[in-house]
Amino acid sequence: MSESVVTNVVVPMNFPYNYRVGQYIETYIRGLGEGKILGIKCPSCGKVMVPPRKICGVCDRVMEEWVEVGPEGTVENYTVGHVRLNLGEVERLDTPVLLALIKLDGADSLLAGEVRGIEPEKLGDGLRVRAVFKDPAGDSLSDLEYFEPEK
């Protein structure tokens, strides 16, 4: 009689978390609902950052001045994704996804976003894009749905 030994058990960890986004991301999300992208300006270095946050760590200053940026911007860095990660597992995609770091007009930082409506080979640095908002808005970060080439 062979001895049965358990060598492996699968334990999926799925704990619920309830993150408070804080007042900065809340204001940002409300802005998206109105079709606006809001950045925050550092009173010291004057840089406008998106997404916004409370503190400019470089200048040690609390940031309070909201600045509307975009919705147009320029692609500064990009990648064509042939896979996506689903809970850490690599899944191949039939249609590649286009991701870019975009400098929105009026902002100093780059915002990560998905670009749609363009062939992968045409995506490149310097491409002008424009934010597309979800309609109706859903009080969420994905109200800024994607970017498309500027017409």
Binding site: Y17, Y19, R20, L99, L141
Partner: peptide
């Protein structure tokens, strides 16, 4: 960042 990047799912180890 759970309040932004993790919600959007654009950034990950590979991207």
């Amino acid at each position: 960042n759970p309040t932004y990047d993790r919600q959007l799912g654009i950034l990950n180890e590979l991207s």
